[in-house]
Structure formats: structure tokens, C-alpha cells
Amino acid sequence: MGSMVHCQLWMGSLEPYMTETFILTAFRKMGEAPMSVKVMRNKFTGEPAGYAFVHFANDEEAIDAMHKLNSKPIPNTNPMVRFRLNNASNTGRSLIDREFSVWVGDLSHDVDDYNLYRVFSSKYNTIKTAKVILDNSGFSKGYGFVRFGSEEEMKDSLISMNGYIGLGTKALKICNAVPKPKGALTPGSSTGTNSATSNGGTDYSQYYDPTTYWQNYANWQTQGYFDPSEHQVANDGSSVAMETKREDDLDLIEHSAPVDVDKMNRERLDADCNLWDALESSKWLPCDMLEVA
């Protein structure tokens, strides 16, 4: 992890009154011990540029502080401002760098960035960031993203971490983080950004949120399937339909089974021929072909 952050974090969304001393004090009140802070300034006007670099003794302290504090309220800010932190190396990351990220769903509301990071980093060596997405009020939306430095580890997590129990109160749901087409706007936003960016660090608004898919998937697994041949007789003697779960409807389809295309075509043609033969032998004619006397 030594080449990841180079012992410093980028801190954004700073107000003009946030000096180096103010930021150092804020970190220390949150239990962190940065060595120094450098607030960047506009080289022409000398005014604060709205961001700073926070230097730590080592990379582990820096990455831990990022995940512990990201999106947490900064002490002594009024109105409240939240920590917005990122790996210093990520701020200059090339747009052509490949991203290996997964979407993590069913996060209970007690799970924050640090919890998410710790669980994945205990199993994988290339974790770069872990982010729980928050709403505008600062509450978890129930899902987040984990970014890997290795495609192999990312693919392994899709299997190994799906259904994982031990983070929060629910089993995790894992799937690929699917990027949106360039220029796609986030619902409710005219700029394509949302709380994913304002709550800190990496911009995850570029990814789709598959929460709806998983909700529908759960419904498919639990909903009843109506069988019109099964009824219950009510007290008044009327027939009341019952919902039953058809286990056979849930059987997996064997997609690798060999398919005889010629045989299937012959069977379809034979069925069509049999239909027309039956119509012809019955002397049935469509109404628009009959002459009215």
C-alpha cells in the first residue's frame, strides 16, 4: 500500500476561514495525528484555493484517516461542513487509468467508509478506496463502492464477498460497478453529479446504482405464482383463487445443452402443416371469403 497515497491526503471543499491550524485541530479532535497541513492558494490573488494537502507519518495512517473521517462533520464548522478527503495521488489520476470497482449493497446504516474498507482490505491487498454513498442529509443510502488496484481481486470479490456476513447486520450483495455512458445525468441533477461527489473523494456518480435490480430479484424469490387450477372454496360456496409458489418455475435452464436446430425447424414446420391440413379438411373458410346471398 506504500505507493498509494505517499503519506498525504487531498482535502477539498474548504471554506476561506479554514487555515492550516484550524484543519490540524479538526483532525486531532477526531483522533487523528497529521504531521502538517498545506492550504493551497491561488497564485495570482493569494486567496485560498479551496483545498489542502494533509501530511501523515506513513501511508497506513493516511488511508485510515481518509476512511474514518470522510463525510463526517468537521468540528467547529457553522454551518456544518463535512470532511471531503481523497488519496492525494488520485487527484491527478489519468482519465485512461482503468477502474476495477464493485458495487456493495444491503449495507446497514451503521456501516461507514472505514468499516467497509477494513473488511475488504483484510481479504485483498490492492484496495484503494471504499465509499458508502450518503444522501443529502448525511445518512447512508444502503450501498457503496470498493475500488481495487487488481482486476483479479475485483473478480474474486464478486464471488467470495457476495453473501458475506460480518459487516453490519445484513449479508452483502456484490456486483460489478457499471459505468454510465458519457454525458448521462444522475436523476435529479442537471450536472451529472450527486451526493457521491459532495460526500467525499472519488466520484461514484459515474456508476449505475443496481439497488432496484436487487430489490426486484428479492421479490422474484419470494412472491407467489398464481395457478388458476388451484382454488379455495369460501364459506359462501364461491371459488377463491389462491397464490402458490411454483417450484418448477424456479428451475434453472441448462443453457449448455446441445440444440438441434434442424430438428426444431422440422417440428415447427410439421406443426404448421398439420394446422393447415386440419383447416382444409374441415372446409372452414374465413368470414371475409364467404359470399352473402
Rank of each mutant, 00 (worst) to 15 (best):
D272S: 05
E254A: 12
V37Q: 08
T19L: 15
E47L: 13
H55T: 14
Y208W: 05
D248P: 02
G224T: 00
A33T: 11
E254D: 15
A271F: 01
Y208A: 06
I133L: 15
R84Y: 12
N86A: 11
K68D: 00
D110A: 13
A257R: 15
E15S: 13
S121W: 06
M154R: 08
P258M: 05
V178Q: 05
Y17Q: 14
T212F: 06
V54T: 05
I96H: 04
R28H: 06
P210A: 01
H6M: 08
L269N: 12
K173E: 09
S198V: 02
D249A: 13
G92D: 10
D59P: 08
T21V: 10
R41T: 13
E15Q: 12
D106Y: 11
D270W: 02
V104E: 06
T186I: 07
S239F: 01
R246G: 15
I96E: 08
G166K: 10
D97M: 14
N115P: 06
V132F: 06
S89K: 01
G168T: 05
P187Q: 02
F83S: 10
R82K: 15
R98E: 13
V104H: 13
V146P: 00
L285F: 14
M154F: 03
G105I: 09
V81T: 12
P286Y: 09
L172M: 07
L116A: 12
M4T: 05
V102T: 03
N194T: 03
